[in-house]
Amino acid sequence: MSDRNRRTSAEPAWPAAIHDVLKSRGVRQVAYVPDAGLRQLIELCHADRSLVTVPLTSEEQGIGLAAGAWLGGQRAVLLMQSSGVGNCVNAFTLGSNCGFPLLLVVTMRGEWGEFNPWQIPMGQAVEPVLHASGVRSFRLEHPEDAAATVDAAAGLAFDGYAMAAVLVSQKMLGAKSFAGAR
């Protein structure tokens, strides 16, 4: 892990660990729709001039982008919040039908300690929807497992020509709260 990726001690180390794995796995295009849980990882990717970062207006755009990247000989990753999984469903046919690799990093809402009821339906549907769409999922519950989990998913995607998602649990991220505003 390079020193320039190290942040203040108050910041968790797992985003830099994931960034390092993306680099070691040869990822060149990083597409994302922002989530608070992805803030550091997105910043690390933007600061890395060897990566092309692609902000999206909706998550399914990243499925097409990743397919096009692979056609052109590059690897992509798609970062999103769990609510974006539902936007992607029809586009997953690119992986199922054509064997395009797909690597997703999904930060979860609607599970551990969720305060916003509107996040719960999609959050609870993430795994069934992914599995019904042919996407394998790996849960990431502990920060120290971040590198190994993303590496395993990347292996499945890029070596196994499969669709694989890392689901970063809300327990690990810390549930969002607006309690102070009440």
Binding site: Q29, G64, A67, G68, A69, W70, L71, G72, Q74
Partner: peptide
């Protein structure tokens, strides 16, 4: 978007 991934 497939075109953009390819173009990049």
């Amino acid at each position: 978007m497939i075109g953009m991934g390819l173009a990049l």
